[in-house]
Simulated scan of single mutants.
Amino acid sequence: MRRLKLGVLISGTGRTLANLLRLTAGGELPAAVSVVVSSRPDALGNQIARDHGIPLVVVDARKVRDIETFSDAVYRALDEHKVDLVTMAGFLRRILIRPDYQGRIVNIHPSLLPLFGGKGMYGERVHRAVLAAGMKVSGCTVHFVNEEYDAGPIILQACVPVLEDDTPETLAARVFAEECRLYPEAIRLYAAGRLRLEGNRVCILPEPGLEG
């Protein structure tokens, strides 16, 4: 299993970034965060990158509105740090997918896609929609990123129950606990070369030596 250089894209609190850093520091993830790219100069997660001495590049989405210009700025940072895998961690701006990054950008979404995904569906909005729909289960999805919001090939999903007395906050906490487990598992599979894209499907290959 190779050790990956990760580029982490953030727009908010950086909770997922913090989880990845905890796991890499503890040797539980075969990776190191090489650069953090933030779409907001005031994102709380920026300070997490600074506190860990990780290069931080801010591409202000409120000032750089053209998607090509914005995408180019993000890729310059990723190229400079020679990242192997890009992990979106609460990143709220769409980017164009450069050909050499196809199958190298992943995201985690706090619902069971394709339900409750798409533009504007993030954070508490997702959990409110789940509760309003009367769902009995929710969960999270790790997927490869394409140029549509939350529409790329699904790698892994995990379910959590929706309880009768749930609020958006209690449901969010239960889903985030699964995100903290599922996202690293997807990264491990990628590092082990066990993810194969077949059209819009992701096949998880068996561990070497366990075929058949």
Rank of each mutant, 00 (worst) to 15 (best):
G7Y: 00
L9I: 04
G14Q: 06
R15K: 10
R15F: 04
T16A: 05
A18D: 15
N19V: 12
R22P: 01
T24M: 07
A25K: 11
G26H: 00
L29P: 00
P30N: 12
A31H: 00
A31G: 02
A32N: 08
V33L: 06
V33A: 03
S34C: 06
V36R: 00
S38L: 02
R40A: 08
P41S: 10
P41V: 09
D42I: 02
D42R: 07
Q47H: 11
I48T: 12
I48F: 04
I54Q: 01
P55Q: 03
V58A: 07
A61T: 00
R62S: 10
R65P: 00
D66H: 07
I67H: 05
E68F: 11
S71K: 11
D72W: 11
D72M: 08
A73M: 12
R76D: 15
D79F: 08
E80S: 12
V83Y: 03
L85V: 11
G90T: 13
F91T: 08
R93Y: 02
L96Q: 12
I97M: 13
D100L: 15
G103Y: 09
V106Y: 03
N107P: 01
I108F: 05
P114C: 11
P114S: 15
L115R: 15
F116A: 11
G118I: 09
K119W: 10
G120Q: 14
M121S: 01
M121Y: 08
Y122G: 13
Y122L: 06
A129L: 09
L131T: 05
G134R: 06
M135K: 13
M135F: 12
S138I: 06
S138L: 09
G139M: 09
T141W: 01
H143A: 13
D150S: 12
Q157C: 08
V160F: 14
P161G: 14
V162A: 13
D165E: 15
D166M: 10
T167P: 14
E169R: 14
L171V: 14
A172G: 10
E179F: 00
P184H: 13
R188A: 07
L189G: 02
Y190W: 12
A192Y: 01
G193P: 01
L195V: 03
G199A: 09
N200G: 01
V202M: 03
P206Q: 10
P206S: 08
E207V: 06
L210V: 08
